[in-house]
Each structure stands twice: as structure tokens, then as C-alpha cells.
Nucleic acid binder design. Sequence first.
DNA 1: AGAAATGTTGCGCT
DNA 2: AAGCGCAACATTTC
Length: 259
Amino acid sequence: MPELPDLQVFSKNLVKTFVGKTLKTVSVRNKKKLKVSVSKLKRSLEGQKLLDIRRVGKELHFEFSGGEILGLHLMLRGKLVKFEVENNAKYTIVELLFADDTGLAMTDFQGQANATLNPEPRDAPDAMSREMNLAFLKDQLSKSKAIVKNVLLDQHIIRGIGNAYADEILWDARISPFSVSNKIPEFGVKALLRSIKRVLQKAEKSILKNHPNIISGEVRDFMLVHNPKTESSPTGAPIQVKSAGSRKTYYTREQKLFK
DNA sequence: AGAAATGTTGCGCT
DNA sequence: AAGCGCAACATTTC
């Protein structure tokens, strides 16, 4: 559910509540997606101090004093819930209980949200990182015949952009989501890069301002085109919708189609 | 009360 | 063979 800007704000808010605390117990209520044994997870993390929480792509990384990292991925419907002493949330996947009896649970009624111990570092740069620059984007687009929206969404190429923000970014850059990646000229790639950074940065600021303590859910009321309640873009063009499965692409004729 | 929404994986088709 | 489209995940929330 949440996308990069939401997760970025969650990580900041979680830092305020939990960093510096010592983990008393980690409990796994649903181990379908857990790739290590529960005993190894407990051995690695329990008794360790939480040093930092960072967003990496669409994951949240909890860094502990022993050097181990717990990665949480909320997938489509995962939620984070704070609790005291006892976690009564339904559909809990994992729960962290700290020494002061405050805790954090990750829940998901679909059972898709997952936890990883020491997630593998990936080559693909985070959308907000310095490595995500013009040279990189140009290179990636030049070697792909896929439509540009699919490149933005491909977590093996760029980490962190989801369906809704991909539409917002492409509208901001005035590039059609159906443009063929290797046909986009340099000025288009530049615009796209600027829009990636601008749209994500603006969204993060807005979420932080309007939902200063949020650690769950998603905020998308400010979205300009990826928004079923809106009929036209700020510049007056009717918004078109194309469905692919259950996911939708929102766009307008203002966006240039390179093919 | 029925539709809609988000991400990832894996499979089949072109 | 790269790239697309779909199904599955299974319940909540609007």
C-alpha cells in the first residue's frame, strides 16, 4: 500500500519512537514468507539495541547493534501497529517488543508482508539516491525496449517507485507512460529524472507536514492524475485511464509519446 | 454492498 | 528471448 514517500516518513517517525531501545523479543506469528529459522532470527536480534531505521527501496531496514538488519516489506496491504506490553492486532506477521514494553507489529490480512534477516544488498539504486542520476537513467533507458512506466516500476532497475507515483512522475515530466524507453531523447530523460526527484520529494514533505506521526497507511489525496476523483489534470486535459489487470495507469494527452 | 486498491512472483503467450 | 499480461495472495475499506 504505502509507496516510497509514505515509507520514508514512516521510517522517520519510527526512529523517533524506537531507536535507542533494546529489543526484548521478536515473535513470528506467520512464518510463511520468513526465509530464516525463527531461532536464528531470535538469536541474531534479541538483546540488541536498535541503532537506526532506514527506508531502502520499498523495505524498511532495522539496524541492530550486533550488525544484523531486520528488513520489513509491507507489500500491498501490510500495516505497522504500535502496541504496549501486548500485541492484539489481527493478522500479525512479526512483532518486536522492546525492553520498555513498547512494541511494533507488522500485520497483513493477505499474509504477503514479509520479514528478512540481513536482506541481500541489491545493485539497483534507490530512486532518491545519488546513484540515481542522469548517466544511470540514460544508460538504463537506452538498453530497454520496454515501455517507460515498466522500467520505472522494475525494482531490479530502480528501487522504490510504485504504480501511483510512476503515473505522477510521468505526468510531471509530460512523458507518456507508453513511450518506448530507448526512444526517449536526452531532454526527455533529463525531464524524467527531475520529475522523479521532485515528485517524490514533494510528496514526502507534504505527508510529513499533514500527517506528522503516521506509521501506516498511505496518503495520496494530493495526487494530480493518479486519482480516481479527478477528471482533468491541473492544466485542463482530461485524464485517461488504462487498466492492466487490477492496476491502472492514469495519464493525459499532454504527455509526449516517444516510439 | 460491491468494487477497488497496492507489490511481487511466476507462468504462458507473442 | 525480451517484454507484456494475467493470476494469485485473501480481506478491508470506501
